[in-house]
Amino acid sequence: MLKNSLILILILGFAAIMLSLFLSYTPSEDLKGVSKHYAEYGKEEVGAANLVSAVVVTYRGFDTLGEVTILFLTASVIGFFLKVNHSKDDENTAVKKYSEILGTSAKILIPLMVLLGVYVFINGHLTPGGGFQGGAIIASAFVLMFIALPQRKISHKVLSAVESFSGLSYVLIGVLGIILAAGFLDNQILSLGTFGSVLSAGAIPLIYILIGLKVGTELTGIISNLKELQNEQ
């Protein structure tokens, strides 16, 4: 009872702070400071139609690198926690009777979903979307595969190879930015191209493809680790 009332007092205190924040909030009319710079010069400096992509990949590229690192660490910690002994043969993990219709349609749908993911991250600098969303869509395609076609296995070696390759190339492109252009992860190592076409905005499409591959393989790895846990007794 004492505990509950303490929690209640804490929540009420927080609510009072929130309420005062809410009441003192006045919506601003115009962009200020660094956002204004992004909006005014983003087109000339970066050449990406989607300004959010420009901020994520170039202006705040370090944040994204850190984020991808955090995701990588999470995936590896999960893999470490859920160490599955692969020595057990797959014979005793009887494949559950699955629906024929779902299996057949999944075979049609999975390539289309992967294609959609690739489309989303290749066009990340023009339309809403980008590496993270595309990677998540690819990961959900693999989830469909795990559910619908349980007898198919996915090779962890290929996953980790793709992931390491994309992570390494991401950092290498960043270092190339120091050598060829103004600084780390500068996108002007390639020419900016015509504004609004697919091959524009310098290195942004390249970086987003790498991020997409990395995020997709990492999320697939997490889910595949959890899935292999299901079969283990």
């Binding site: 115009d30 962009l31 660094v34 956002s35 204004k36 992004y38 909006a39 005014e40 983003g42 087109k43 300004l51 959010v52 420009a54 901020v55 994520v56 705040r60 944040d63 994204t64 984020e67 980008g130 993270f132």
Partner: peptide, 17 residues
């Protein structure tokens, strides 16, 4: 005259992360 026509892109990028 982009700066007077769009919303702030910075919080969106942070939320994406």
């Amino acid at each position: 005259d982009t700066a007077s026509k769009i919303v702030d892109p910075l919080p969106q990028a942070l939320v994406l992360t």
